[in-house]
Design a protein around this nucleic acid. Structure first.
Lengths: 341, 341
DNA sequence: TTTAAATCCGAAACCGTTTTCGTAAAATTG
DNA sequence: CAATTTTACGAAAACGGTTTCGGATTTAAA
C-alpha cells in the first residue's frame, strides 16, 4: 500500500533521531528505557520492518544463504536431494535466514552464479555431484562454503558427508548373513564419489566374509539406468540370488525389470537399496535399505554455515552422518539357519 | 579473496568517475565509445560485478522473485509441487532473476514472510492451497503477485490455474466410454478448490452420460489417505468397477490397497488418476491419468510475473492451463464394444 | 560541593550503487 | 568565425539503513 515507511519516518513520528531508532531496532545498549518503549510503540503500530538492501549495504551481510544444486541431479524431483533441501529449508527458516535457490546448468562450466557474484548471499551450501574446479572457484570468493555429500577432494573445506562406505558394508554384510553368496551390484557411474564409496563398502564386505568377487555381476553407469542394468544382470549365467542397488531409485527400477522377468521379490531374488527414499517404503514389497538421514544432512549443513558466519569459525572439519539399516521385506533369508526358524 | 572491488575502485583504475563506470555498466547513452571500451576492459580484467545491495537500494528493485509454498504441501518432496517449482526455477534462471524460496508454516496464520516484509523480492508467486486471508495480506503490500492453482476467490489477482473440472470430466467420461457404470471417487478434502473442481467435473460427466450418482462410493478427506479411502471403498456393497482418483498420489496409494485385497488392476478394477506425476508412468501397471503441465504452470507464472514487473502491466487476468488425457494400462475396456474387439 | 563517571542521545559519515544536472569541449550551423 | 547545439563526462545528491563519536545530562564518588 504505502510506499513503505523508512527509518526516517519512524524517527520523525517518535520525535527522535534515526540513529536512536536504529539502536532500539538493534537492541543497542545506549538507549533509555523510556525512549525505547516510545519507539517500539511506533514501530509496532506501523509494523515497520527495516529495508533489507539498506541494512545489507551497511552491515555487509544479507542474511541469505545460497543453496546450489546441479540441475542434472534434478534436485527438486529427485527424492533424495529434495529431502536434503527440505532439511536445509527448515533449518534456514528456523534461523531466520532466507534461502536463495540456484540450479547449476550442466553446460555452464565454472562461471560463478549470479547470486555469488553479486554478493546476494552470506554463504553457499553446495549439494550433490559437481565439478571440482567449480568448488575451487567458489572457495576463492572467500564466501563461507559448506559442501554436502559427495565429498570434494579439496582441502580446507567444511563438508557434511554420508557414511557411504560403512552403509554399503552393512547392507552387503546383511545379505551375506541371510545366506546370500552371490550378490549383484548395480549403481550409477562409479566415478561419482558416493557410488564409488558404496562400491568399496560392498567389496570390503565380500572380502571380510571371504566371498569371491565377480565383476560380471557388477553393473554400473548411466543415469537412473537401474532398469537396464538389472536386465543385463539377470541374464548373466548363474544369476545372483541378491542384488545390492547403490541407491533406492535404481532399486525400484530393478523391481520393474525383475517383475518383467516374472521373478518374484524376495522369493526368487532379494534386493537391498540405499538412501531410504519414500518410494522404498511404498514399493511392493517394501524395500530393505540403508537409511540416510537426508533432512538432517541438510540441517546440519545449515547449522555449520551459521556457525561459520557467526563465530567466523575457521575450523574446516568433515562431518560424517551415520546411516542405519532398515529391514523390510525385500530380502529373503536363505541360510540354513534361516530355514530352521 | 580480495574484499571485492567496488565501482569506485574500477573508476580509479580506469581514470574516470564512478558515474561513468555506472553508465557503461548500465549501457547508458551518454558515454563515449573510447571510454566505454577503456572501462569495460578494466571491468572484465577484474571481472567486476556491481554489488547487489547498493544497486537494489537505489533502483528499488532486487531482481529476486519470492516463491511461497505451504509447508503442508511438502512442496519439495511432493511430486506435483516440485515439478511446478522446477518450472519456476528454470524460467527464473532464464530471465536472469533469482529465486527466494519460502515454505509457510501451517500454524503461522497470516503474518507476512520475512522476505516480503523486508522487501527482499520484487514479486511473489504463491503456489498451492493457502489461507485467503493471507493472500489479501500479500495483496496489500502492493507487491506484484501471481497465484498458481488452486484458484483464490479474490478479485484483481493474476492467476495461473489448471483446468481441473474439464480434466476430471474427460477422465470420468473416458471411464464411462470404456463401459464403466459404477465409478468410485477418491480425493483429499473437497474444500480444497482443486479437489472440489475435480469432483464437479466427475459429477458433470456422470450426469451428462445419464449415470446415477452414488455418494457411498465417493470417499474424500485426509492428507494422502488414498490407501485408507480405497480400502473403505472396496468394502462397499457392489464394489465399483473403476475408481477415479483425484490425484496420482492417491491413485498409487489405491494401488497398494487394491493389491492387498488381492484384486488386480485393471482386470478386477480400473483406475484413473490426475496430475501425471513420475510415479504414474512407473507404476505397475502404468497409470492412465490426466496430465497437468506442471513445469509450464510454473514457467507461465514467472513470465506473468516478469511482465507485471516490466510493463507494470496491471491487467489481472486468469490463465487456465489445458490438460490432456494420457492413456496407459490401468483402465480395462468392459464395454460390449470393447469385448468385441 | 566539586569532580569523575556513567548514561543517553543525535550529527554526520559511511556502505555501493544510480541518477540528475551542470558544464567544458567538440561538433554543427549560419 | 561566432553562435548554437551536441556530446561526454563528473560532482553531488539520493537510496535506507548502521555506526562512530562527541557532547549534554544525570548519577555516583570524593
Amino acid at each position: 500500500m504505502s510506499p513503505s515507511l523508512t527509518i526516517n519516518d519512524i524517527a520523525r513520528l517518535a520525535n527522535v533521531s534515526k540513529s536512536t531508532v536504529s539502536k532500539v531496532l538493534n537492541d543497542k545498549p545506549d538507549v533509555g528505557l523510556a525512549t525505547k518503549k516510545k519507539v517500539m510503540q511506533i514501530v509496532e503500530k506501523h509494523n515497520f520492518v527495516p529495508n533489507a538492501s539498506g541494512k545489507s549495504l551497511k552491515k555487509r551481510a544479507t542474511e541469505n544463504i545460497g543453496v546450489i544444486f546441479r540441475k542434472d541431479d534434478n534436485p527438486l524431483s529427485n527424492p533424495f536431494f529434495s529431502r536434503v533441501l527440505e532439511g536445509i529449508e527448515a533449518e534456514i527458516a528456523f534461523n531466520d535466514l532466507n534461502l536463495m535457490l540456484y540450479s547449476m546448468p550442466s553446460n555452464k562450466k565454472s562461471s560463478l552464479p549470479k547470486i555469488v557474484k553479486e554478493r546476494k548471499i552470506d554463504g553457499v551450501i553446495l549439494v550433490g555431484t559437481r565439478n571440482e574446479e567449480f568448488v575451487r572457484e567458489l572457495q576463492k570468493t572467500n564466501l563461507p562454503l559448506i559442501v554436502v555429500d559427495p565429498r570434494a577432494d579439496i582441502s580446507d573445506c567444511q563438508q557434511v558427508l554420508i557414511d557411504n562406505e560403512n552403509g554399503a558394508f552393512l547392507a552387503t554384510q546383511y545379505l551375506i548373513n541371510k545366506g546370500h553368496k552371490r550378490i549383484g551390484f548395480i549403481a550409477g557411474e562409479l566415478s561419482e564419489h558416493s557410488f564409488g564409496q558404496r562400491y568399496t563398502g560392498y567389496l570390503k564386505a565380500l572380502k571380510s566374509e571371504g566371498l569371491p568377487i565377480d565383476e560380471t555381476i557388477v553393473k554400473t553407469g548411466g543415469y537412473e539406468a537401474g532398469y537396464e542394468l538389472t536386465k543385463s544382470l539377470l541374464q548373466v549365467s548363474e544369476r545372483p540370488s541378491a542384488i545390492f542397488a547403490a541407491n533406492d531409485i535404481n532399486a525400484v527400477l530393478a523391481y520393474k525389470a525383475i517383475n518383467e522377468f516374472n521373478l518374484s521379490i524376495p522369493d526368487d531374488i532379494s534386493i537391498i537399496g540405499f538412501d531410504d527414499i519414500y518410494l522404498a517404503r511404498m514399493a511392493i514389497p517394501p524395500l530393505t535399505t540403508v537409511r540416510v538421514y537426508k533432512e538432517e544432512l541438510g540441517s546440519l549443513a545449515v547449522r555449520s554455515m551459521r556457525d561459520m558466519i557467526n563465530e567466523g569459525s575457521d575450523k574446516r572439519s568433515i562431518i560424517i552422518m551415520p546411516i542405519k539399516l532398515i529391514k523390510r521385506n525385500s530380502v529373503k533369508d536363505i541360510s540354513t539357519h534361516g530355514k530352521l526358524i
